[in-house]
Computed example of a mutant assay.
Amino acid sequence: MKVRKAVIPAAGLGTRFLPFSKTVPKEMLPVLNKPAIQYIVEEAVASGIEEIIIITGKNKRSIEDYFYNNAELELHLQSSGKLDMLKMIHQPTTLANIHFVRQKTALGLGDAILTARSFIGNEPFAVLLGDMIMEKSLSCLNQLINVYNEYKAPVIAVEQVPDLEIGNYGIVLGEKKGERLYRIHRLVEKPKTELPSRMAIMGRYILEPDIFDILNDTKPGVGGEVQLTDALQTLTSKRSLYAYQHEGKLYDVGNYLGYLIASIEWSLKNEDIRDSLYIFLKKLIADIEEKN
């Protein structure tokens, strides 16, 4: 079956961005002039996704508002002749059929995905984490869909990370099956001990409905939460699960450094500000080197 539905979990508490994230979801952090979650929705749509469900939680109402029309603002912009701005704010509301459901309690990524069960039904589906964005020119999700269409089995995106960052991600170990493809044998969520792998899960998945029964029986793991990684480990004992080392660069904007890197690199690609920003950064680096 065609992968036409996607789940975007955005119910996390976002504690790494406190106190800002106390009232504003981290998924609404702007990268240039758009919130991170819009880039994720755009990637899904560009990959052929037709229906999207965003899993939200308490204090996440602004995400829902962003993808709905604001009649008062639109009328003001139209009457003021600011048609470019009108087009800009209207775009998010027309990207796809977007639905919302609230995770009652923040019990982890696995539990968030489980709340989408009735929406997904008996179809394969994509999962895109709400704090991972990708260069627009190359869709990570589209790469996974191509792998899924060929192998008819669940597949997740991975990439090599530095040793010091292994404990920040789910890590996979597997058998190489192609230039970028691996069959997974083991998955460990945020390992505290050294593993013979630096292959980290990067927030993009193609799954099938059988994952829901497994999630329903998965006990809380790291952090007292229901971990999708643990459910995927169970899945490997039942069927093939693949990892694909994606092409292109994913940005983890769910932490300070990743957010700053994404903001700077994407700004340097923006024709309106890149030259001025480059001059500023060059001077800043020169000043720092002079002081040192």
Rank of each mutant, 00 (worst) to 15 (best):
P9V: 06
A10Q: 10
R16T: 15
K22L: 13
E27Q: 13
E27A: 06
V31R: 04
V31Y: 00
K34W: 05
A36L: 03
V41D: 04
A46M: 10
G48L: 13
I55L: 10
K60Q: 09
K60D: 12
D65A: 13
Y66H: 05
Y66W: 04
A71N: 09
E74I: 01
L75P: 00
H76E: 05
H76Y: 10
H76V: 14
M88T: 06
H90P: 02
Q91E: 12
T93S: 03
V101S: 12
A106T: 00
L109V: 11
T115Y: 10
F119T: 14
A126P: 05
V127S: 02
D131W: 10
M134K: 14
E135W: 15
E135S: 15
E135I: 15
L138E: 15
C140V: 07
I145K: 09
N146C: 06
V147T: 10
E150R: 12
P154W: 07
V155G: 06
A157Y: 00
V158Y: 01
V161I: 14
E165R: 08
I166L: 07
N168T: 14
L173S: 13
E179G: 03
R183G: 05
R186K: 13
T193K: 03
P196H: 03
S197N: 07
R198S: 01
R198M: 05
I201C: 01
G203Y: 07
I206G: 04
I206C: 08
P209D: 10
D213P: 00
D213E: 07
L215V: 05
V222Y: 15
E225Y: 13
V226C: 09
D230F: 00
L235V: 04
H246W: 09
G248K: 06
G248R: 08
G254N: 02
L260G: 13
L260P: 04
S263Y: 10
S267W: 01
R274N: 09
S276W: 01
S276F: 04
Y278M: 01
F280Y: 04
K282W: 06
L284F: 09
E289Y: 09
